[in-house]
Design a protein around this nucleic acid. Structure first.
Lengths: 342, 342
DNA sequence: TTGTAAGCGTTATCAT
DNA sequence: ATGATAACGCTTACAA
């Protein structure tokens, strides 16, 4: 009884522009124009409409508006996993721009799975989103499915993991320069046989990091040894295994394309009694927050996820189709800082 | 030229049920019924429609469907910050249920800000979402704004940080029992003056954790000393400062209502040369991933965010208005493990 | 079982 | 500057 009464009182049906029009003795079209800021409305009328709308608690029915306009004010973001710090920060950066610009954000996770990525793309297109920001799943090896589903008319911005043959804006990190700087740092610390945990070559970012490793070695007059390149997923377990192999191969340092595999490497080496950084240097990639909290603290090539997200959103909002490069920054900590080691 | 051609080929206008109807020489209503699984369609007709739809690449215009039905298939999730592991895992758990049930997920962050929470609620209501899963911002001290905006008709499920006076389903952790277990553990390790970094009392979860701390002490015949309760935000900096005060007050252990303030405490104490866990015990809350990676590794009262998300989504899907309690689990690591300390 | 027709709330295109 | 009207694509009484 009580509850029913409350429902009746509070569950007010949404106010429509037609109701406002009736209340004011004008037509819905004029109300619509007034509310959407059209210049073809008398200032007097506009203020009357705005006042009435406010008073009646009007709020635009976005669904109806979207149907009429053929698109929504929602931007879809597709990421492998939102609980990875990198991606949740990208999302935060994108949101900071998109919300400001009047868009809402629909987030889809692929869990690195190709089918889930396809499903996410479909969902977004079916929701007639205004645009899609995408960082593809590892399992996606090219972008044909993206084109097939989105077509050319739906704005696409790729970030971090991009397919360069897809049209549209891209936001990437300067992986080559970053990895090169990280490797050069290891060289400058006196390490002499520097390997790399390279990651999956299905993603251009990892290919570039490997290139950076090669470039730094070559520049220092060293010959990149293919036997010191460990291709594998970049999780803790594979890092652990690869580090032991690297040790046997005579490595005294590793540039790792991810932080978690670098963590595994440190754990494997410490377990073998190898002293870090005295006997072995490690640099990871991504600057996950644990890198500064562990012992020894881990040097890491930091990405700038918030900025990547911002740039991706800005590219969408501005309609740009350029490629933006966001710089990486090498954070030198204990795991590679041999010269300051006491 | 090439590009233009591609646009013309690929940017196919979306297929509508009307087009399918025309192609089949029947009416849109029949097509609609066939596609939505109505029993009032001849099996023969249905299969013809499905085949044609498939062949023409039809996909339902969700916006039009939603307008007609007065609601969308989107569920909104409002969290303080998605890059907190806890919340991103809650979202993951909720998504696992919601996607299965045919819903998409619209995520809003409040950044702990009241105005942003209000805005998020408005956005969701204006998008006519099917329901809202909410964990309120610290800055929200009661739920009146939630009721004002959502009304009674829009399903609301609260999780983690809940206002118990709001109607609808709630999913919470057993904070009292958990904090009590954590404190009892410290007692069992032989610590004798156990304080607490209690967090903000504007959130029921923190009030309950404080109650748990008190309960464990009382049960052990100790008198909870209000002077050993440190009320403050639960970030690293405040934990750092509070730990020093606790030390001066003669504490030899702290139960911390968050992991980051516990981290600050450990750093402050280590900096003062206090040995952990020999001279001082620390237990945090949330089991953030860094807790197991740092040195000393940190004991933490683990929440179960994925399960919390699942339960919240299940409550929405099933229309339940019950309160679900998800158990916490104490993870004992070095920072409080004095008896195994060598 | 299928067709007819109205309408969800908004916006765009006319005309006035 | 405003009004009339149609349309966006779908769903659903109601009619046949």
């Amino acid at each position: 009884m009580q509850i029913c009464a409350n429902v009746c009182i509070f569950a007010a049906e949404m106010v429509t522009i037609t109701q406002i029009a009736e209340a004011l003795g004008i037509t819905p079209s004029t109300v619509s124009r007034a509310l959407s800021g059209s210049p073809r409305v008398k200032e007097e009328t506009r203020s009357a409409v705005l006042k009435k709308a406010e008073q009646m608690g009007y709020e635009r029915n976005i669904i109806a508006s979207n149907l009429r306009k053929g698109r929504s004010d929602i931007v879809g973001i597709i990421v492998p996993r939102i609980h990875r710090e990198f991606f949740s920060n990208v999302i935060g950066g994108a949101e900071s721009i998109l919300n400001e610009a009047g868009y809402s954000v629909l987030i889809c996770q692929t869990h690195e799975d190709f089918d889930k990525e396809v499903k996410a793309l479909r969902t977004l297109r079916n929701n007639r989103v205004a645009g899609v920001l995408l960082s593809h799943a590892i399992a996606s090896s090219d972008g044909t499915h993206v084109m097939d589903i989105l077509g050319e008319e739906l704005p696409l911005v790729q970030f971090d993991r991009v397919f360069s043959d897809l049209p549209g804006a891209k936001v990437v990190s300067n992986n080559l320069e970053g990895a090169s700087a990280a490797t050069a740092h290891l060289i400058s610390q006196g390490y002499r046989r520097i390997g790399t945990l390279a990651g999956y070559m299905s993603s251009e970012a990892y290919v570039e990091r490997l290139e950076g490793w090669k470039a730094a070695l070559s520049q220092a007059g060293m010959v990149p040894d293919e036997g010191l390149v460990f291709y594998d997923t970049i999780v803790r377990e594979t890092g652990f295994a690869a580090a032991l192999k690297a040790l046997e191969a005579g490595c005294d340092a590793l540039y790792c394309a991810g932080d978690f595999c670098a963590l595994g490497a440190i754990q494997a080496l410490s377990g073998r009694g190898v002293s870090i950084p005295k006997d072995f240097g490690i640099v990871g990639t991504a600057n996950e927050s644990f890198t500064s909290l562990m012992t020894p603290s881990m040097s890491s090539l930091a990405l700038n996820p918030f900025e990547i997200g911002r740039q991706a959103a800005l590219a969408f909002v501005s309609g740009s189709v350029e490629t933006t490069v966001v710089p990486m920054e090498l954070k030198i900590r204990e795991s590679s800082n041999r010269l300051s080691y006491v």
